[in-house]
Design a protein around this nucleic acid. Structure first.
Lengths: 151, 151
DNA sequence: CTCATTGCAAATAATTTGCATGTAA
DNA sequence: TTACATGCAAATTATTTGCAATGAG
């Protein structure tokens, strides 16, 4: 688990710079995100947040996640199921994803050697890298067992 | 440029197997795709196709591109601008993408060493890979010149 | 007090689908 | 002839936005 305080500070700084205000809705959403900032969708997060305050509207969740993304606290991902998912923008421990095409489970992996080769590719083309996506779609071990049981 | 005939055969086989018919609209769309099968969007393809037959509806383009995708002739990509783009599903010459965040230009790259490391990652997690996405987002050489001119 | 924020509903944008009509095979 | 295909418009889905009411600083 990353250093959450660092992210809270990052968000506070961004909000101060932009003259944004903190509200109970925002706090509830941000807290809910920090509880388990791992590939949550808006809908999942909204459900979590409504346990604390049932009146929070989904537009507020969209707006707050956009705020988290702009402030550099969260990264937005799209894994092919048509909706955005968010996770902590943890550069220190950068990882990429394996996505199961059967059960949609997401597994993280780190591969510094791939990152290095990737930097070389960017350099070869004269690109200044901002970010990247590396996603491997396939069938996870669990689903391999389910899909082709010996019979 | 890949062996287009191979892809035409692949499509014909798929259509035969499914009992699908060839129509002048489908032919026009497929031909237009084959002319330049490089990251076209539905809208771009529709424009191209309408030069030949102005009456073709956009639903037909959607349906035909889905057909191309299902038959293994085309791959669908989403590069973050909110719409689907299609390219030839050329496994022999597999490549990934560099996307300029300024001008949205897409550059292809091949990196067999990355692919190999990626296979190792999948194996390490017991995944059976179906396909992958590796996209590097950054600023291309042209836009670097535009964005920060010496002044 | 002032201006950002919220919740709601309506607006978008990309894509999909129902259906009457057209048309391959 | 017998389904499959098409074009249109309406439906869907995820997300965004206008606006009046609310609330933070």
């Amino acid at each position: 688990m990353a250093d959450l305080q660092r992210f809270r500070d990052m968000l506070a700084a961004y909000m101060a710079k932009k003259g944004l205000r903190s509200t109970k809705q925002r706090d509830a959403i941000v807290d809910a995100f920090f509880v388990q900032p791992d590939h949550v969708s808006i809908e999942e997060l909204l459900a979590r947040v409504r346990e604390r305050d049932a009146a929070i509207g989904y537009a507020t969740v969209y707006r707050t996640l956009k705020l988290l993304t702009e402030s550099g606290v969260a990264d937005e991902h799209r894994f092919g199921d048509g909706l955005a998912r968010y996770e902590l923008a943890d550069e220190e421990a950068h990882h990429d994803h394996l996505i199961c095409v059967e059960c949609a489970k997401i597994t993280e992996f780190e591969a510094p050697d791939i990152e290095r080769l990737q930097d070389e590719v960017a350099k070869r083309f004269g690109f200044v890298t901002r970010f990247h996506k590396h996603e491997i779609y396939g069938v996870c071990p669990d689903c391999q067992k389910k899909t082709k049981p010996r019979r």
